[in-house]
Amino acid sequence: MIAPPRVWWKPLGQLERSWLLIGLVWCIFLTAMMPIWFFLGRQNVPATTYRATPEQFQAQVNAMIEQYKVGEERGFPIVEPPPGSDVFIQARMWQWYPIVKLKKGETYRLHLSSLDVQHGFSLQPMNLNFMVLPGYDYVVTITPTTAGEFYVVCNEYCGVGHHLMIGKIIVTE
């Protein structure tokens, strides 16, 4: 709060030097963890993105439903695309559409996009979260490692019905 003495450019004390060094090492470790996990870890942030207008994306969703529909639940079609295929899930106020059925241990290219405002894809209870933006087709390459019923919550505020927006993903053995 007061002006320092005229010459304040002084060497660090021993404890200060030690802490600075420990801090620097910790920061380098924090930095290194991200590329290490990128090469060795099995959970990495998807980077594949395409441009897609709402009309284009909706057409792809409808084509997929036509081809792979296996049932219906509460008005939502259930689709079961083959392993390795492209799966399209559309977000709009206030639903995730359609319900998809996946096989445990198989890999799918999940395409996420919005027809209106921004939404948040939040897979529960696995707790994996991604942004869903209109105009962007975000490709999440996913391999379910557990079977059961999973829910897709919207976790980006999208209007007054935000808390009604929930979808479903079924994973079979």
Partner: peptide, 19 residues
Amino acid sequence: QGVSRRHWDVTFTQAPFQS
């Protein structure tokens, strides 16, 4: 545990499914 921010009802009582 996965609870969203800015969310009025994490129990989804009025929604089609309840997680």
